[in-house]
Amino acid sequence: MFKKLSAAVLLSCICTFVYAQDIDLNQMLEEEQKKEEKDKIRYTEATFKSTRIINGHSVEVTQKGIMDFRIAHRFGTINGGLYDLFGLDNASMRMSFDFGLTPRLMAGVGRSTYQKQYDAFLKYKILRQSSGKRNMPVSLAVMSSAMVQTMKWTDTSRPNYFSSRMYYAHQVIVARKFSENTSIQLMPTLVHYNLVKLAGDPNDVIAIGIGGRQKISPRVSINAEYYYQVPGYKMPNTANSFSVGVDIETGGHVFQLHFTNSRGMTERTFISETAGKWSNGDILFGFNISRVFTLKKNRKK
C-alpha cells in the first residue's frame, strides 16, 4: 500500500509540474516558424533598385505588367569650364519605354539624340538568387540589344545599306546580393559591328563589365560601373567606360545622378566608343529618371 501511495504522490507531483510549467507561446511559434522557413524557397528581391546600374543593364527585369518610362541625360564634359557651364550646354538624351512581359522577361525600345540612334532589347532572367529549400548563390540574366544609327550617310565610297548601320550587343549578367546593402554583378559583353570605320577595327568587341551598389539608406544607394575592353578585341583609340553615381528612390520614381566618361547610352556607344578619359577631366554629369506605370492591375488575392 505504501508503494501505491508513494507512486500516486509521485504521479501527482509530475502532473502538477506539467500543469505549472510556463510555456512561452511566442517562443513556441517562433520555433515552428523557423522549421517551416527551411522548407520554403526565399527569392532575393531588389538586387538593384533599377534595371540599369548607370549606363548598362543590371540583373533586374521590369516586373510583369509594368511600363517603365525612362529619360536619361548626359551633359558635356565638365572640363569645358564655365564657357559651357561645365558641360550643361551640351546635353544629349535618351528616351525609352521598357515593358515587363512576364515575371522574367522584359523588352524595351529607346531613341538617343546622340548619333540619332534607335535601339531595342530583350532581357531574360534565367536564375534567381534564393535561399531556404533551394540555395542559388547568384541571379543570372541574358540581355541582347540591337541598335541602329540614322545619321546622314557621308561615306560616298560605300553604298548606303541599312545593315551597315546596325550594331548588336549581347550580355550575360551574373549578380549576387551579398547583404541587404551590397550587391555586385559581372557582365561579360560582346558588341558586334556590321561595319567598322577602318579595316583594322575589330567587328567584335569583347568587354568584361563589373558593377555594384552600396545602399547608404533605405532609399539611397551609391552605384559604380566599369567596362574593361579585352585587349585584342578592343576598339582602337577608345577608353574604358567608368561611371559612379547615386540612386534615389521616391515612390514610383528612381532618380539616378552620376558622373561618367561616356556620352552614349547604348551598349555600343558606351562600352566600345567611349572617347573621354577620367584622367583628362573628360567627365560628364548625367541623370536617369525612371517612372513606372502599372498597365495591368495585380489581381492576385
Partner: peptide
C-alpha cells in the same frame, strides 16, 4: 495584394 509589385517591394525594402 498592394497596387503594384513595385509597391510590395518598397513595403518590404
Amino acid at each position: 495584394g498592394f497596387n503594384s509589385p513595385l509597391q510590395k517591394e518598397h513595403f518590404n525594402e
